[in-house]
């Protein structure tokens, strides 16, 4: 730890800054007061109990889960196609095509949202869970490609060639050799897309019809001060859920790295 003293202190201070809002969440979720402020007044699980009684919340959770699962599957399928093409083949206008597909990574979500809204309204398509899925797939596919690209690139191509030499067809070699090797990448792409879709607000806000997603429902509740403790309780549950999901995703990613024998460089992106 040569000359890293100050930097180390800074790193810890920065982590405190990063975790400050997250740490408050469970504190207020279990706090026995309707006002979100210090000092804390006492321990209660009432807010969690209330969660079980709100019908509109349950509908929005189910709606969001449906959207997130569909998005994860579709985005990962599109991701597999594009990542396989970009990692294995050289084709005309490759940089342009891949760059174009990756655009939603940097495009403000509100632009995607309004552009899709205008088109859907012009075509006379009613807003529903599926219109949100259309937008979310667009948003999640680049993340999926980024994850799967490194999974495909990390794979040793000679394994596939060996399969061809041993008489496998292109498809059977892909199914028997490539797919199992990149499976950890696929699982991690599914989980990341699921998490992004579950949390996405702007596109859902514009494209959801009468059935709000969970973030859209939350947004409507933030206006009512008396509803905030329940929102905190919900947030705590969501935090726990995404922690479990991400730890799983990280586990699969590391297993993938170990399986292909590469050096672990860390991170999802």
């Amino acid at each position: 730890m040569k000359r890293s003293g100050w930097l180390g202190i800074y790193a810890v201070a920065y982590l405190v800054f990063l975790y400050a809002p997250v740490v408050l969440l469970p504190l207020f979720a279990f706090n026995d007061a309707t006002i979100i402020a210090f000092p804390l007044s006492g321990f209660t699980t009432e807010w969690f109990a209330q969660l079980a009684t709100i019908e509109a919340l349950h509908d929005s959770v189910i709606n969001s889960l449906y959207i997130a699962v569909s998005t994860a599957i579709l985005a990962t399928c599109f991701g597999v196609f594009a990542a396989r093409a970009s990692s294995r083949y050289d084709f005309p206008a490759k940089r342009g095509i891949m760059g174009f597909i990756m655009i939603p990574l940097v495009l403000p979500e509100i632009i995607i949202a309004v552009a899709l809204l205008v088109v859907l309204l012009q075509l006379g398509i009613a807003l529903s869970a599926w219109t949100v899925i259309l937008g979310h797939v667009l948003l999640c596919t680049p993340f999926s490609i980024a994850i799967l690209n490194s999974a495909f690139l990390a794979m040793d191509r000679s394994l596939e060639e060996a399969a061809y030499d041993l008489g496998e067809t292109r498809w059977s070699a892909f199914r028997l050799i490539t797919l199992p090797l990149v499976m950890p990448g696929i699982v991690s792409s599914l989980l990341i897309s699921f998490t992004i879709s579950l949390d996405e607000f702007i596109i859902a806000f514009f494209l959801t019809g009468n059935e709000p997603t969970l973030p859209v429902y939350l947004w409507s509740q933030l206006r009512f001060p008396q509803k905030i403790p329940v929102v905190m309780a919900l947030g705590t549950i969501l935090l726990a859920a995404s922690l479990i999901l991400l730890t799983t995703a990280e586990y699969f990613r590391r297993r993938g790295v170990a399986r292909t024998g590469a050096k672990d460089t860390g991170g999802f992106l």
Binding site: A82, Y89, F91, K94, F100, L116, T141
Partner: peptide, 23 residues
């Protein structure tokens, strides 16, 4: 190789054209 790569990327590209470029 070029044609196969294009074929493989085409579903994703088509989706992006329909839902990103057109809007």
């Amino acid at each position: 190789e070029g044609a196969q790569g294009l074929l493989l990327v085409s579903p994703t590209l088509l989706y992006a054209l329909l839902l990103l470029a057109a809007p």
